[in-house]
Design a protein around this nucleic acid. Structure first.
Lengths: 150, 150
DNA sequence: AAGATTTATCTGTAAATACAAATAATTGTA
DNA sequence: TACAATTATTTGTATTTACAGATAAATCTT
């Protein structure tokens, strides 16, 4: 069988964990976390999104996201609004404070990216990212997202 | 800034999470988890390892590992022994039952690997794994492993 | 060899996370 | 339009995880 580091899930997990830990420590003084960063980045890309949409694009569980957004709202980073078109849904909007924090976090995220990819050619970086997207898509076919057991 | 999926930590995390979830669901009926698999795989590669060593190679926190090993020991998959050479240390040894479970888990892990990498050339797979190892090493230089604050 | 320091593991406890049930609003259908 | 089914989010709660402190043994220093 050989050592553990021939297995892809393990390689992914440990690399991901290291970056996540390092980034988290760095942004803690700003009162931010990796997940707050993800939500802000997603909203920066497209504002006024639904909870469910955000959960999907950030890969944060909806129930986790609810409580995370509670905290972010309390800190004045975002505001929740009932969707005008569909009152079941809630949309999130970043505030000026949220945008300020986003502007502070973005260069940190980019710096970590640079550190993680030190020594990589641009071509290698793109190949890596492309592979990770493919891999995610491959697994998506399998992960049937738990429909009712009919 | 653009969408979230240009960021490496995010790409790593979501790909890793998907594989982990899918694998975990599949091995649950066998009473196993991803972490149990990691410990067994590490011990299969080299048996009678210390807790600290295992923590390092599996990337499972020592305190988490302690309780995980409690459970595994209770299930008869491994036995703890005081290290003869250094009585501070505990070494882990797989039992026959542990080896049986390992033999059942290995093909599942390999199948998941194949699914995740469907459509990848052997060369691409190796490039991906190599990149992930480099990335981990790059971050290792930074992650100072929390020494005392002197 | 006694005392201080370091190393290895374990335990207490708080925070993070996720599944399932509850709530609330919409849409489809008779 | 009323009833059932579906969709979106939130809340309850159990599990997981990790940090910090406790315990115990080895090593280093004088």
């Amino acid at each position: 069988m050989g050592p553990l580091d021939v297995y892809l899930p393990y390689l992914l997990n440990r690399a991901g964990a290291r970056i996540a830990t390092a980034f988290s420590e760095e942004v803690r003084p700003l009162g931010a976390t990796l997940q707050i960063w993800r939500v802000l980045a997603a909203l920066h890309d497209r504002d006024r999104r639904r909870m469910g949409d955000l959960s999907e694009t950030t890969s944060i569980e909806v129930s986790t996201l609810t409580r995370l957004v509670d905290a972010m709202e309390k800190r004045g980073l975002v505001v929740r609004r009932r969707d005008a078109a569909d009152a079941r849904a809630v949309t999130l909007e970043v505030t000026a404070a949220g945008r300020r924090l986003t502007r502070r976090l973005t260069p940190i995220a980019e710096r970590y990216e640079a550190v993680a990819l030190r020594g990589f050619e641009a071509r290698e970086t793109e190949a890596l990212k492309a592979s990770l997207r493919r891999l995610y898509a491959n697994m998506g076919a399998l992960t049937v997202h738990r429909r009712r057991p009919g």
